[in-house]
């Protein structure tokens, strides 16, 4: 089992290599460079800087140098923050981003599944319609619209919560988590409702009822597990959505997470910083999907060997 696990983990490496290569190519294809600015640098300084970061080398050499450093676990330097490495910058932002992301995912799972089950238990009644209206809303309002609306309501009008910033207080995360989770809540609620409605039609649910089990027992013990399967397979895409969403949300709420470095890095052509963030996020998503596969097999006895 552990040997097979290791082999499957190694199989994930080509995916990450492809990710790095594509990102590298796209970054260098974008016009401009890290040291282009409104006030031109003196020619001598510019040449010196480019030589220091190997930017004077042909592109394929720069690529090999980056991969060589990467193989040693070195994400390289940041051009904008010369005194700190990319790894240090990401390390500084990751705790905030991880907290934001995991809270949003947990909230989405719990609330989304609960809403989906409630909707499926009362199909076409007001409970169902209310959840579906919420779900359509959550899916159609982009988070860069939702976040300012939340700020406007909760911070500007009601003065109930801070509009942004981060000093470690929990209430500062409430709005960002909500804004990040809402689209996922919507999707998970819809998935859960559809799966639940389907499962409740199966003959084995009829058998469970024929045994005289209470409706609660039928739902929690007999229906929930098959309903979990589609929700769990959605967790991979949900993680990806949450990570990309967090880039925007961190920017809006002024949270010092990895996403902000990504935005700044992309604007400043800070190649190393952008590559580093993409690589970390890519690894997270790939690992998350891998964990989802394992969990899926655990839940469905027919998938086990």
């Amino acid at each position: 089992m552990s040997a097979r696990l290791l082999r499957r983990l190694l199989e994930l490496l080509p995916t990450l290599l492809l990710l790095v290569t594509l990102t590298f190519a796209m970054l260098h294809a974008a016009p401009g460079g890290p040291f282009d600015s409104e006030r031109a640098l003196p020619e001598a300084t510019r040449v010196q800087l480019e030589a220091r970061y190997h930017l004077d080398q042909p592109l394929w050499r720069q690529y090999l140098i980056y991969l060589g450093d990467l193989a040693h676990g070195d994400l390289g330097p940041s051009y904008q923050y010369p005194d700190r490495s990319v790894a240090e910058l990401i390390g500084a932002g990751l705790p905030v981003s991880a907290l934001l992301g995991s809270l949003a995912m947990s909230l989405a799972l719990i609330v989304g599944m609960a809403l989906g089950i409630i909707a499926a238990m009362k199909p076409h009644r007001w409970q169902d319609r209310a959840v579906m209206v919420l779900a359509v809303g959550g899916l159609s309002i982009p988070n860069f619209v939702l976040a300012p609306l939340l700020i406007l309501l909760m911070a500007v009008s009601l003065h109930a919560l801070p509009a942004g910033g981060w000093s470690g207080r929990p209430q500062e995360l409430l709005l960002p988590v909500l804004a990040l989770a809402l689209p996922q809540i919507a999707t998970i609620a819809r998935l859960t409702r559809a799966a639940m409605l389907e499962v409740m039609q199966t003959p084995w649910i009829r058998t469970a009822r024929a045994k005289g089990l209470s409706e609660r027992h039928v739902v929690l013990r007999h229906a929930l597990r098959p309903v979990l399967l589609p929700v769990i397979s959605y967790l991979g895409p949900a993680a990806a959505g949450t990570l990309t969403g967090s880039v925007v949300i961190e920017q809006i709420f002024g949270l010092p997470g990895v996403g902000r470095y990504f935005v700044l890095g992309a604007l400043n052509r800070d190649y190393g910083l952008v590559l580093g963030v993409v690589l970390i996020y890519g690894t997270l998503i790939v690992l998350f999907n891998f964990a989802v596969d394992l969990l899926y097999a655990r839940l469905d006895p027919r998938q086990r060997e």
Partner: peptide, 13 residues
């Protein structure tokens, strides 16, 4: 007792 014993037993339990 129902017709199709494959579909009438819960495959997950």
């Amino acid at each position: 007792v129902f017709q199709d014993p494959m579909a009438s037993l819960n495959p997950y339990l």
